[in-house]
Simulated scan of single mutants.
Amino acid sequence: MAADLIFYTNPMSRGRIARWMLEEAGATYETVVLGYADSMKAEAYRAVNPMAKVPAIVHRGDIVTECAAICAYLADAFPDAGLAPPVQDRASYYRWLFFAAGPVEHAVTEKARGIAPTAEQQRMVGYGTFEQTMDTLEGAVAAGPWIAGESFSAADVYLGSQILWGLQFGTITDRPAFRDYGARLSQRPAYQRANELDDALMPAEA
C-alpha cells in the first residue's frame, strides 16, 4: 500500500527545510531521494514537479512544491502539532513566512550572484536592498522568542532555515540577533532529528 505522504528530496537541497517541518509535524512519511543528474529530471518526477526541483510532497494524492508552501500546508494538515496560530492571529505568521520566501530569498540569491540593484532598480525589486532586508529581518527576530510571537510555528522553520544556512555559509550578515535566534532553533529536537536523517543520506565524498 502506498504511503499517505511521500517526501521527495536530496540531502544537499532545500529539502532539509521540508524534512525539518515534517519532523516538527510528527508526520509519518516515505522518503524518496532523487539525484540531480538523473532521477530528478526523469519524467516520473516531472509529473510531480515540472520544474525538476526538490523538495516536493504528495499527501493523499495532492502535490505541494515550494518550501514555504510545504511548511504552511503541513501546519494545516497536522493541526495537533500546533505549528500555525489560530486563523485570527496569523497576521505576523503569514507576514514573516512570505517575507522569508520573497525578499529574503531574493536578496540573498542576488547578493551571492554579485548583483546589487541600482537606486532606480531598487523600486522594482521586492527586497529594495540587501542591507534593508537584513535590517528588517533583524528587527523581526529580535522582537520575540519566535517570529510570530510566543509560540514556535511553521514560519520559524522556513525563516529560521534561511538564517541558519545564511550564518553557516556566510550569505547573510552575522548579527547577534540572528545567532541568538539560530541557537534557539538548533535546540529543537525535531531540527536535530531532521539533520541526523539527512546527514545519514549524504554521499560519502560530500
Rank of each mutant, 00 (worst) to 15 (best):
P145K: 02
M124P: 00
A116Q: 03
P117S: 11
T109K: 13
W96G: 10
S151A: 15
A154V: 03
A69D: 12
T173Y: 03
F152G: 13
R175N: 07
Q162E: 09
A206W: 05
D199C: 03
T171Q: 09
V157R: 11
R19N: 12
E43I: 04
I70S: 13
T9S: 11
M134R: 13
E66A: 08
L137T: 00
D76Y: 00
L34W: 04
D135A: 12
Q132M: 12
P189C: 06
G139T: 11
T136N: 02
L167F: 02
G166W: 01
D174L: 01
M21L: 07
D4E: 15
D198W: 02
F78S: 01
M134H: 14
A84K: 14
F130R: 00
A91D: 06
D4C: 09
Y93S: 15
A84L: 11
V157S: 06
S13K: 04
H106I: 00
P117D: 11
F169L: 08
Y8G: 10
A44C: 12
L167K: 02
A37Y: 01
T129P: 10
L197F: 09
R184L: 03
G82S: 04
A42V: 05
I17G: 11
M1P: 09
A143Y: 09
R179H: 04
R123V: 12
Y191N: 13
E120S: 10
A72V: 09
P86L: 06
R113N: 08
T129W: 07
A42R: 02
Y181L: 03
P55G: 09
A52F: 10
D135P: 01
M21A: 12
A204K: 13
E23S: 13
L34H: 07
C67M: 14
G182W: 00
D198C: 09
R193W: 00
V58W: 06
Y36A: 10
A190S: 06
T173A: 14
Y29K: 12
A116M: 01
A183R: 11
Q88L: 07
T109E: 11
E205V: 15
I147V: 15
G128C: 05
A204C: 03
D38K: 02
F169Q: 08
S39N: 15
D38C: 07
V104R: 13
L167Q: 03
A72L: 15
R46E: 07
R14P: 11
R14V: 13
L164H: 06
E131P: 05
G182E: 04
H59P: 14
I63W: 00
T65E: 01
A52H: 14
T9I: 03
P85I: 04
